[in-house]
Structures are given as C-alpha cells and as structure tokens.
Simulated assay, not measured.
Amino acid sequence: MKHYLTIPIIFLLLATLSCKDDKNEQVKQDDKIKEMNNEQFFKLSLAQWSLNENIRFQGMDPFDFARIADSLEFEGLEYVSQLYKPFYEKNGIDALVKKLAEESKKYNQNNILIMVDNEGDLADPDEAKRDEAVELHKKWVDAAAALGCHSIRVNTFGTNDPDIWHNAVVDGLKKLSTYAATKNVNVLCENHGWLSSDPDKLMKALNEVNMENCGTLPDFGNWCIKRKDGENWGECEEEYTDKYKGIELLMPKAKAVSAKSYAFDENGNETTLDYVRILQIVKDAGYRGYIGVEFEGGLPEEEGIVSTKNLLISANQKLK
C-alpha cells in the first residue's frame, strides 16, 4: 500500500509547490506593474523665484542659482529675468547669456525656460504699446534660444475687460509666437494673475492664436483674477474657484508645469493644495516634462524648496 500511495502524494506535493510558484510569480508581476506605474513621470527643475527673497533682499548672487540647484539635486533651471536686471542693464543680454551658460554647464544643469517680467503688456489695448511689448520680449526669445531653453513664460496684463483683453492678447501672443517660432522657442502663458488666471478665457485665446509654440505653464497656485484697486499684485478680491478644474483645463497645451507651494503640515503635505490630486491630473494629461519647484512661503527658502521637492516625490508614489 505504501508503494502505491507514494506517487499520488508526490503529484500532490508538486502541484502544491507549482501553485505557490504561480502565486509568487503573480505577486512579483503585480509588484512590478505597481512599480512601473509609480515611476517618477517627471524630472525636477528649480524655479529661481523660489530664491527671490534671498536675491532681492539678502544679497544672494543670482549667478549662484545653478550651484544651489545642483546642491539640492535638481536637473534643470527656470530663470527669472527681473532678478538679473542690474547685470544686463549694465553689461547687456549677450554677457548675461554667456555667464548663465557657463554656470549651468559647470554644474551640469539643463536650461529649461526664462520667466519674463516687466517688458510691457502683451494684452495692452493700445496696439502701439502692445507691439512695443512684443519687441521688448524678443531679446528674451533670443536669450532662451542661445541657452537651449525650450520656452519663455510671459505675462498677459494690459486690461481686465474680457472682451477687450481677448482680441488684444491674441494679437500680442500671435506676433511674439511668430517670431519665437523662427528660434524654435515656445511662448507660454502661466495662470499669473488677472484674466490669465481664468483658464476658460485663457484657453479660448490660445485656441484662437492656434500656434504649436504658443502654450501654457499651469501653476498649482496663482488663481487671482482681480486684485484690489486694479493692481497686478497685492490683495486679491476675486479668485477662480476650482483650481483643480483650472489645471485640468490648462494641461492640453502645457509645455511646462510649476509646483507652487506656500506652507506644509506635520506630515509634509501642502496645506492649501492636494499634490496627489494635482499630479494625477498632470500625469493623466500625458505630460512627461519637467515640473518646476516654486516655493513662496514663510519658511527659509532652501527649506521650503526641499519640502516641495520631497512632497512631489512622495505624492508621485501615490498615483494610480
């Protein structure tokens, strides 16, 4: 009897082991799929505005930007034009470009974009002033091309009357984007105040511009449509209410993304923005470029930068 029972028992043991192997293999495959789904879908760049307080008020050299970004383990740089104004007014744009190129190469940083401010209003109702703003922006298109940046970010101030703004901004953006296309540079509109922070109106304007190199730079924050006394900056009187819907609306034309942050709780989460929800929107839109860290809170700037970077990395692990 022993002899005849041995064979079925062996088959049973083999079958059991086979089932365990199959289950282990399935667990490995499931873990691998989960790991693939949670691979970081973006690279990290540093927005120079995160250091603006130190640069403007504490004497930090703006040319230390590449060194600091490298020390904080970023891969790319997002410059802010106004932070170099004393240098380029004295030495010229070409000298600025040369020095920035040297610093970015020294610290193995990729030049991503230039955020351009204070060069006139691209949505000014007066066509002559609008055209002047286009001309003033062209030097930054040239600088971006020379540095290897893919884009400049522009503002669309000029009027907060929706009907007047639409026609003016379409004209200004189309003229600037036509020039930028000859340099292989994108012109990006951020939700950066006034009607640019109303994504329905901004996307309507960009769809009418209808140029491949004219797109968006969705910012997680910056949803103020109207400020007190009609100022560009300051106390906000009216906000676009659904920031998550706003980001979703802006993503189809996104060529860069800005991770704004202000404050963090004890778990490292941003207190006003659901980073997991936002990153899921960004990922689902098919975006696979750089996300720029732009801290604007009350912490020491480098601490806020690192907290934002860490939050992006941890939030990515929770995505579907």
Rank of each mutant, 00 (worst) to 15 (best):
residue 20 K to W: 14
residue 82 Q to A: 10
residue 45 S to D: 05
residue 78 E to F: 14
residue 9 I to N: 11
residue 108 N to L: 08
residue 99 K to Q: 07
residue 104 S to D: 09
residue 10 I to A: 05
residue 35 E to K: 10
residue 92 G to M: 02
residue 87 F to N: 03
residue 116 V to S: 00
residue 11 F to L: 10
residue 9 I to G: 13
residue 77 L to T: 14
residue 52 N to S: 10
residue 86 P to V: 00
residue 44 L to F: 00
residue 91 N to T: 06
residue 105 K to Q: 09
residue 95 A to E: 12
residue 1 M to W: 13
residue 80 V to N: 08
residue 13 L to V: 14
residue 32 K to F: 10
residue 83 L to H: 02
residue 64 D to G: 02
residue 4 Y to W: 15
residue 34 K to I: 15
residue 12 L to A: 09
residue 104 S to Y: 05
residue 113 L to C: 03
residue 57 F to E: 10
residue 37 N to W: 08
residue 98 K to D: 14
residue 113 L to D: 06
residue 21 D to A: 14
residue 37 N to I: 15
residue 56 R to D: 13
residue 17 L to P: 07
residue 92 G to D: 01
residue 81 S to T: 02
residue 34 K to G: 11
residue 25 E to C: 13
residue 63 F to G: 05
residue 12 L to T: 10
residue 18 S to E: 09
residue 103 E to R: 04
residue 7 I to Y: 09
residue 31 D to E: 12
residue 71 S to T: 12
residue 111 N to Y: 06
residue 108 N to R: 12
residue 6 T to I: 14
residue 41 F to N: 01
residue 52 N to Y: 11
residue 81 S to D: 00
residue 38 N to D: 09
residue 53 E to V: 13
residue 29 Q to W: 11
residue 42 F to G: 07
residue 34 K to T: 15
residue 114 I to D: 01
residue 12 L to F: 09
residue 103 E to G: 04
residue 62 P to M: 11
residue 49 W to L: 06
residue 78 E to V: 08
residue 101 A to V: 13
residue 102 E to R: 13
residue 83 L to Y: 05
residue 108 N to M: 05
residue 84 Y to N: 03
residue 94 D to C: 07
residue 56 R to T: 15
residue 97 V to C: 04
residue 30 D to I: 06
residue 20 K to C: 15
residue 33 I to N: 07
residue 58 Q to M: 11
residue 107 Y to W: 06
residue 56 R to C: 13
residue 88 Y to E: 00
residue 86 P to I: 00
residue 70 D to T: 02
residue 48 Q to K: 03
residue 112 I to E: 08
residue 58 Q to D: 10
residue 12 L to P: 12
residue 73 E to G: 07
residue 73 E to L: 04
residue 6 T to D: 12
residue 21 D to E: 14
residue 89 E to T: 06
residue 41 F to T: 04
residue 34 K to S: 07
residue 53 E to H: 07
residue 93 I to G: 08
residue 51 L to G: 00
residue 77 L to K: 07
residue 21 D to Q: 14
residue 44 L to H: 01
residue 37 N to P: 09
residue 24 N to H: 14
residue 70 D to I: 00
residue 90 K to C: 02
residue 113 L to S: 03
residue 54 N to T: 15
residue 31 D to W: 11
residue 26 Q to P: 08
residue 78 E to P: 11
residue 84 Y to F: 10
residue 3 H to D: 14
residue 111 N to H: 06
residue 58 Q to L: 13
residue 22 D to C: 12
residue 58 Q to T: 14
residue 89 E to G: 05
residue 20 K to I: 15
residue 91 N to G: 08
residue 50 S to C: 03
residue 30 D to N: 11
residue 16 T to F: 15
residue 114 I to Y: 01
residue 66 A to K: 01
residue 70 D to K: 12
residue 49 W to I: 08
residue 111 N to T: 06
residue 110 N to Y: 09
residue 16 T to H: 15
residue 73 E to M: 05
residue 63 F to D: 08
residue 30 D to F: 08
residue 117 D to K: 00
residue 70 D to G: 08
residue 110 N to T: 01
residue 21 D to C: 13
residue 15 A to F: 12
residue 20 K to V: 15
residue 80 V to A: 10
residue 39 E to K: 09
residue 100 L to N: 06
residue 108 N to T: 04
residue 109 Q to S: 03
residue 107 Y to R: 08
residue 14 L to T: 00
residue 78 E to C: 13
